[in-house]
Design a protein around this nucleic acid. Structure first.
Ligand SMILES: [Zn+2]
Ligand SMILES: [Zn+2]
Ligand SMILES: [Zn+2]
Ligand SMILES: [Zn+2]
Lengths: 154, 154
DNA sequence: TGAGTTATGTAATAATATAACATTTCTTGG
DNA sequence: CCAAGAAATGTTATATTATTACATAACTCA
């Protein structure tokens, strides 16, 4: 639960990082892409495509392909992840730096925490090696209760 | 790859097991439920809801709620799993016996193998415990190439 | 500048899933 | 057996999520 922290800071930092990454890669961090990424970061949970669509009034002509194309760009460049079990999107909390991340999804406060533990990655690698399976992409999403949301629930 | 094995046997066995489980639990394994489970098992990959719908001609009036309700029943009773990354459904290969299963999805032959390794389950438990997160449900889906589909691909 | 590329706009539609209510089928106590 | 009541299925409509195809606009760089 991040209820009380100064959240504008997270958004700002995420945007700055994204901007830097795009610069480094020669990608265009357009107004639309910036705005969508801001909207995604404006809570610590996940954002649904059609909610983003609704919130993209003003300058941006908001139709589904606009949002999905932007989400594609952000995902391809590691700035956003899709949460398959929710059909929703979260900002990547450490772009460029990770491989094999997974997500802790709190069903009480709806926050999504992204984790990159080598222990999990190792276990996954061992397991797939044992089956002689060559993994390309892993979806690991754990739904439950975060630390702060366990109070009084046992 | 199960290309050459006598697949009718798998279907039959899955149906028999499901029938037994429903009997034991006082659940009704109706014609519709049996037929949907058969269709799901008729390949080793996964089945999409609307494909099931198409294949449910004949006796069954095939409209979306018919299929989704049946899938709900089968999932609730552990006979079928949903693969979130594919929006598709697979028969459970060991109903009743498992907890914490995960899926190896071959993007070449489309087969889905269900695995229940305690090593993975342990790693997951350690990881979530470390974060003080209480997991309720885990989605773990690994897309890649199965043993038989790696030939000639490096 | 202007030709080529990349990004965005727009309309239509596909794919996945659920809500709400009617009807049928099954079960079970009387 | 027979009528509640419960469970399952039928039916219509609609919600939600995502893509295709083609038009226009903005940017790049020679
Ligand atoms: Zn990430
Ligand atoms: Zn929480
Ligand atoms: Zn299973
Ligand atoms: Zn394969």
């Amino acid at each position: 639960m991040y209820g009380s922290h100064e959240h504008a800071h997270c958004v700002e930092e995420a945007i700055n990082t994204a901007s830097r990454i795009c610069d480094e890669r020669g990608l265009r961090f357009t107004g639309l892409r910036r705005r969508v990424l801001e909207l995604i970061w404006e809570n610590h949970g996940s954002a649904k495509a059609y909610d983003l669509l609704e919130n993209l009034g003003g300058d941006y002509s908001a139709k589904p392909p606009t949002v999905y194309r932007t989400l594609d760009f952000l995902q391809e460049n590691g700035l956003v992840h899709k949460i398959n079990s929710l059909n929703a999107y979260v900002g990547c909390s450490h772009p460029l730096q990770h491989k094999d991340c997974f997500f802790l999804i709190c069903s009480a406060c709806n926050e999504v925490e992204e984790c990159c533990g080598t222990a999990m990655a190792d276990a996954l690698r061992d397991m797939t090696a044992k089956q002689d399976f060559k993994p390309d992409h892993t979806t690991l999403e754990i739904e439950g209760r975060c630390h702060d949301c366990q109070a009084g629930v046992q």
